[in-house]
């Protein structure tokens, strides 16, 4: 009878399942693995990564990113710059600029610092992925790093990113929701979305099943970009973008409005 009881107990444990992870503590490297319930829940429910550091996401330490919403476009002439550091307002007027690498540039990096010298954007410009949209305010600094070549800096007016059938495919840079991107709920199709909320709270969203930026570029280049193929996972990441939010795009961003 005791054996029968034990068998029933064992069967119950077995059938109940797979959630039973045994009495041994779960470990890695010999250390117990500590689950951060809040962080896991934020990721599972919203696709948000909450335990982030400034090495990877330096923009989270910026206090004046939200001030970029006040920056307006200008219609100055295009300047051609070489590798170096350029400050606002000594070298450029505050404004919105389109950056485009010269034809002889094989690889380069563009880094934008805010007035507190916090790095708010770092992006790699090369080849077909060679344009960027940056906003520069008073006290901001632009670094252009390359061994060879030049960068065309063209002041532009503020305008909305045009949506195609595939949604929005946004080149790297800094964008204001309401001015460049329509406010609303978006499904994240690429891997990562960085946003500084209009109240100064930084948020990072991650979609493990999002396409890489190389993939986005490839699909766009071949006109074979079908958003229904991209979100095959149940883990769809929906992000609400409100007026005044600042979106940082380090790699090409693909989002689809719901």
């Amino acid at each position: 009878m005791k054996l029968l009881k034990f068998c029933i107990l064992a069967s119950a444990v077995m059938l109940s399942g797979c959630a039973f992870h045994g009495i041994m503590p779960t470990q890695y490297d010999g250390e117990p693995l500590e689950r951060d319930g809040e962080a896991i829940e934020a990721y599972v429910n919203d696709g948000q990564i909450i335990n982030i550091n400034a090495d990877r996401y330096p923009f989270i330490e910026s206090n004046d990113l939200t001030g970029l919403a006040e920056v307006e476009g200008s219609d100055d002439d295009t300047e051609v710059i070489e590798a170096g550091e350029y400050t606002v307002p000594d070298d450029f007027e505050p404004g919105i600029y389109q950056l485009e690498i010269g034809g002889d540039v094989s690889s380069s990096a563009v880094v934008v610092y805010d007035s507190d010298d916090v790095r708010v954007l770092e992006t790699s410009l090369l080849g077909r992925n060679g344009t960027s949209h940056v906003m520069l305010d008073d006290g901001y600094r632009l670094e252009f790093k390359t061994r060879f070549g030049t960068l065309n800096v063209t002041p532009i007016e503020s305008e909305m990113v045009e949506a195609g059938e595939e949604g929005l495919v946004i080149p790297q840079g800094i964008y204001i929701v309401g001015e460049h991107i329509e406010a609303g709920d978006y499904s994240l199709k690429s891997e990562e979305l960085l946003v500084m909320r209009n109240d100064g709270v930084p948020e990072v969203f991650w979609n493990s099943y999002g396409v890489t930026y190389e993939h986005v570029m490839e699909r766009t280049m071949t006109d074979d970009y079908r958003p229904d193929e991209l979100a095959e996972s149940d883990l769809e990441v929906i992000v609400n973008l409100s007026e005044g939010d600042v979106v940082i795009v380090e790699k090409v961003l693909s989002i689809l409005k719901n």
Partner: peptide, 12 residues
Amino acid sequence: IQDGDLARIMQL
């Protein structure tokens, strides 16, 4: 790994 989120580790 820091979050102890094994599901995410597997996805990555």
